[in-house]
């Protein structure tokens, strides 16, 4: 088999998305939300809204931007993905199964004794997880290490690190930011899921992080701000960034998102960062997600 034919997606194009591509990615974001509701019903507790805010980001990366090979989670030339906000892993596992990295049946026992899939992702147990997470603030450093490793190996893979906006409060993020800019890690891209909320409330009420874009710029990163739910715009930006092989600066994409996007009562109640929908409410959430324009 030709290697190229195994590539799930390796869009080096800077072209705007076609209508079909946009529709496909919307469908995949909906798939992430629906699967999240389904899997959390098994666990009886989970981070719905943390996934809903980044569903389009996950869809754009895993179904368009990243170079991946179906069924080959350890392919050395793959683009890397690190989930700094590890509590959103429930939205990532269905994608890994869809790409043939883990058996689909594994999803059915999500979080149950003996199953590798927990609330936070474990690289030693789950093929397709490029690095474990769960302790907020490490992932950008881990990703910087991968970018350095790639440079030593003369590989040009891109390292995408999805960070929470609450994560910006961790000091290590800024150690990594200084480090990556100093070492000119142009293959490192941080995406901040700027949904505005963390466990205790609004990020800007807990410990404010604005002006976030200015902070990253002052750390010598290239900064882009984008609507994190406009999958066409977001994907085009990420395609363009990935295609720029000459860049010597790391890039921060601040994706403006809505926590709980897609389920109206979750969009207005921050407590849904962690919770459980009883079957009747889960069904209503599924119906609302299904009704959302695709």
């Amino acid at each position: 088999m030709n290697n190229e034919s195994q590539i799930v997606m390796a869009s080096n194009s800077r072209s705007p998305l076609t209508a079909e591509q946009t529709a496909f990615l919307k469908d995949r974001a909906q798939f992430v939300r629906l699967e999240t509701v389904r899997l959390i019903e098994i666990a009886k507790v989970g981070h719905y809204t943390s996934v809903f805010s980044c569903a389009e980001i996950l869809a754009a990366l895993f179904y368009d931007v990243m170079s991946l090979r179906r069924g080959e989670p350890r392919w050395p030339d793959r683009d890397r993905f690190l989930l700094g906000k590890g509590h959103a892993a429930v939205g990532l596992y269905p994608i890994l199964a869809d790409h043939g990295f883990i058996p689909k049946e594994t999803l059915e026992n999500y979080t149950r004794l003996g199953n590798p899939l927990g609330d936070h992702p474990d690289m030693t147990k789950v093929p397709g997880i490029d690095f474990s997470s769960g302790s907020i603030g490490h992932a950008l450093s881990n990703g910087a290490g991968m970018a350095i490793g790639g440079r030593k190996l003369n590989k040009d893979f891109t390292v995408f690190t999805l960070l929470g906006d609450g994560e910006m409060q961790e000091g290590q993020v800024w150690e990594a930011a200084l480090f990556a800019a100093h070492h000119r890690l142009g293959r490192l891209i941080a995406i901040v899921d700027r949904n505005g909320y963390q466990l205790d409330g609004k990020v800007d009420d807990v410990i404010g992080i604005e002006s976030l874009a200015d902070k990253w710029r002052s750390f010598n990163w290239i900064v882009h701000e984008v609507d994190g739910h406009n999958v066409a715009e977001l994907t085009l930006l990420l395609r363009t960034l990935k295609a720029d092989m000459a860049r010597k600066q790391p890039v921060c994409v601040i994706a403006k998102t809505v926590k709980g996007k897609g389920v109206s009562h979750m969009e207005t109640e921050p407590g849904w960062h962690l919770g459980y929908l009883a079957p009747v409410d889960a069904q209503a959430a599924i119906e609302e997600i299904m009704r959302t324009e695709r």
Binding site: D130, F131, G145, I148
Partner: peptide, 18 residues
Amino acid sequence: GISEQNMVSVAAGIATTG
């Protein structure tokens, strides 16, 4: 530089590449 925690986490990322 003076960022020991970043150093350890970066080293782990480097190790993933062999």
